[in-house]
Amino acid sequence: MPLYYYYFGVLNATLLFRTARWRPPLLSRHAARGCGHAPSYGKMAARALVQYVVLRGDLRREPLSWPLGALVAQACHAALAVTHAHYQHPDTAAYLDQGGSMRTVVLEAPDESALTTLAETLQQNSIDHKMWIEQPENIATCIVLRPYPKEEVHHHLKKFKLLK
Rank of each mutant, 00 (worst) to 15 (best):
114 A>C: 11
97 D>S: 15
110 P>D: 13
6 Y>F: 15
67 P>H: 12
17 F>I: 01
85 A>P: 03
38 A>S: 09
163 L>Y: 15
140 A>D: 08
52 Y>I: 08
138 N>F: 10
84 H>S: 10
11 L>E: 12
119 A>E: 09
36 G>D: 02
6 Y>C: 07
115 L>I: 01
32 A>M: 08
105 V>H: 01
31 A>V: 15
164 K>M: 05
42 G>Q: 09
123 Q>C: 08
150 K>T: 07
73 A>L: 14
62 E>K: 11
161 K>H: 14
154 H>G: 03
38 A>I: 01
119 A>D: 06
164 K>P: 04
24 P>G: 00
111 D>S: 09
76 C>R: 09
101 S>C: 09
67 P>N: 10
43 K>I: 03
120 E>R: 09
23 R>Q: 15
113 S>H: 10
27 L>K: 10
100 G>M: 09
81 A>V: 08
52 Y>E: 02
71 L>G: 11
107 L>C: 04
61 R>G: 00
161 K>T: 13
127 I>C: 09
82 V>G: 00
4 Y>E: 13
5 Y>E: 14
103 R>K: 04
133 I>Y: 13
78 A>P: 08
33 R>L: 14
70 A>N: 04
84 H>F: 08
146 R>D: 06
160 F>N: 11
163 L>T: 02
112 E>R: 14
90 P>L: 00
149 P>K: 04
102 M>D: 00
113 S>M: 05
39 P>E: 10
62 E>W: 12
106 V>C: 12
94 A>T: 06
146 R>K: 14
136 P>Q: 05
133 I>Q: 15
34 G>Q: 02
92 T>E: 01
159 K>E: 15
46 A>D: 10
24 P>M: 01
24 P>C: 02
4 Y>K: 06
111 D>R: 05
158 K>A: 10
138 N>Y: 10
159 K>Y: 06
121 T>F: 00
107 L>G: 01
14 T>A: 06
2 P>T: 05
136 P>T: 02
27 L>P: 00
73 A>Q: 14
153 V>R: 00
17 F>W: 01
140 A>Y: 11
106 V>L: 11
145 L>W: 02
30 H>M: 09
69 G>W: 07
155 H>K: 07
98 Q>G: 15
107 L>R: 03
56 R>G: 11
25 P>A: 13
138 N>H: 15
68 L>M: 07
164 K>I: 03
126 S>M: 03
73 A>I: 11
70 A>C: 07
142 C>S: 05
116 T>V: 10
101 S>I: 01
69 G>Q: 04
117 T>Y: 03
1 M>K: 09
90 P>M: 00
9 G>Y: 12
95 Y>P: 03
163 L>M: 15
133 I>T: 15
5 Y>P: 00
71 L>N: 08
131 M>I: 12
27 L>I: 02
117 T>P: 00
151 E>D: 15
23 R>W: 05
10 V>E: 14
106 V>T: 14
53 V>S: 02
